[in-house]
Each structure stands twice: as structure tokens, then as C-alpha cells.
């Protein structure tokens, strides 16, 4: 079992790979920085929705193959977008 100690003010996020395959943990930290947890929740979902829409439009063009080799995708995120079921829980400590 993993244990970790948190304190007041921390925000805990739990998410499935529908979120995690589109956003690295560090990217989630960046896009939620300074936000109230409910706003942070929406920011994560909006970003992932945007990426999933791009995936639908662009996944068959092959352009994301380049990002696998050379670095971040052209939308600035590190992982190629991916469509999947998604779940997100945010807990304000």
C-alpha cells in the first residue's frame, strides 16, 4: 500500500487514462496552477476535450508520428492526443 501525507490546501486528483494519456501530471499541474479546485477540474476537462477533438480530426493524418520522435506535439503537449473513456475526481484537502 502506498501512503502519503497531505495538508490543508492540497488538491488530490484521481483520473483514468482517458485523462492521463492526454496530459502528463506535470501538465495538469501547470494548467491548474493558481485555480480553485472546481475551476481546475473544468480546466482539465476542457483541455482534454479539446485534445480528443483534435485526435478525431487529425489522428489519421500521420502527423502525430513525428511527435513520437522529435518532442512535444504541435499543440504544445507532450503526448499525442487519445480518445478514451475518462473519469476525474478532485478532492480539496
Amino acid at each position: 500500500m502506498t501512503q502519503f501525507f497531505v495538508k490543508r490546501g492540497d488538491i488530490v486528483y484521481i483520473y483514468s487514462d482517458g485523462i492521463g494519456d492526454n496530459l502528463l501530471p506535470e501538465e495538469i499541474s501547470i494548467i491548474t496552477r493558481g485555480q480553485y479546485y472546481a475551476d481546475a477540474f473544468r480546466a482539465i476537462i476542457d483541455t482534454v476535450t479539446g485534445r480528443m477533438l483534435r485526435y478525431g480530426l487529425e489522428s489519421h493524418s500521420g502527423q502525430y508520428h513525428f511527435s513520437k520522435i522529435f518532442g512535444p506535439c504541435k499543440d504544445g503537449f507532450w503526448q499525442p492526443p487519445k480518445a478514451d473513456n475518462r473519469s476525474l475526481v478532485a478532492i480539496q484537502i
Partner: peptide, 24 residues
């Protein structure tokens, strides 16, 4: 407070602390 976490596979849990620079 203590978080106890049981895990299987690739569902993720992260903790963000607004008062520090490096997160999560």
C-alpha cells in the same frame, strides 16, 4: 492527513500543493 492508496494498472493519483513551485 494520511492518504492510503491501493492501486492496479494505470489509473493515476496525483497531489498538487499550490504553495510550492514544483508540482505535483
Amino acid at each position: 492527513k494520511k492518504l492510503s492508496i491501493a492501486q492496479a494498472g494505470d489509473v493515476k493519483l496525483i497531489v498538487v500543493r499550490p504553495s510550492v513551485i514544483y508540482n505535483p
